[in-house]
Nucleic acid binder design. Structure first.
Lengths: 148, 148
DNA sequence: CAAGCACTTTACGTTAACGTAAACCTCGTC
DNA sequence: GACGAGGTTTACGTTAACGTAAAGTGCTTG
């Protein structure tokens, strides 16, 4: 994907335990995750993040950082922002959610799990395909080297 | 993903060995893979498939069917059509390709493999995340059941 | 206090991957 | 020979996920 292949080289964005209370600006987060501020604002607009405000400025807490990470991970797996939001917002409404909401959440989770399983299968097949082509390319190269 | 989640229930499109020589119309293929004819024509326009023509009509052979399957699999994994084409066309130019082309193909394959590995990791993490939420949702439900 | 940097909002632009509609062939069949 | 089912081309429309540009705010640093 132009999406995925352009994300070669993920940044290590682990945060020390004692930084649990740290906050970040939009620019800092953008650099951490190698996205633009625009992207982060867009996710907020779509209801995926809800940073604190101090005056005009957005302040991101650990909670927001985690959400962003989950969102980007979901994106790499091909999920739409709408689907990601569906899970994230329900996750939020959980402690206190009524039984119907919880049941619905379980359904959604089951769907996601199935989707992930399908992807695992796809990855397997794709890998075999790639290994196959790889083999044949190497053999073709060997034959070229021999005749030259 | 609207893409993926709308593809719940993949069709078994295995083809018996003695059907290796069979051909298909665009409509048949479309039904097999649960896409519209428009989609298949679009993939042709983008250089991913190149069916035979008899008069006006497109005739699809096993080779085309395989390509379509690979394309859709790639799509489910989030690859763009451009990336898929890059591999498919090089795969075609292989028997007879020069050394530079083959080397390039090996590079592309390596990239794809890395991308797949990243996706595997993402799936793992995502699964843990989902299992986690699932647990908490079930507990919340249990507590609700107890108090009622 | 001017300059610069990081942030803000608003709004229009862009790209990929098709959807959809119209208008036209070409069969087999009733 | 009308017609219905499948196919065809052409072309404009749509949606998601941002990119990009303009114009303004607020701090701090020389």
């Amino acid at each position: 994907m132009s999406k995925a292949s352009s994300e070669t080289g993920r940044k290590d964005n682990a945060v020390p335990l004692r930084d649990k209370q740290r906050t970040w600006s939009i620019g800092e987060l953008a650099r951490m995750f190698e996205v633009t501020p625009r992207t982060i604002r867009f996710y907020e607009q779509e209801g995926l993040i809800a940073p604190q405000r101090i005056g005009q400025k957005r302040i991101y807490h650990t909670r927001d950082r985690v959400r962003l990470k989950l969102t980007l991970r979901g994106k790499r797996l091909g999920f739409s922002l709408a689907e990601i939001r569906e899970v994230i917002t329900m996750y939020d409404a959980m402690p206190g959610g009524n039984a119907r909401q919880l049941q619905r959440l379980l359904e959604i989770l089951a769907e996601r799990r199935e989707e992930l399983d399908r992807q695992l299968e796809d990855i397997h097949l794709m890998r075999m395909e790639i290994d196959n082509v790889d083999q044949r390319a190497r053999e073709a190269l060997r034959k070229l080297d021999q005749t030259n």
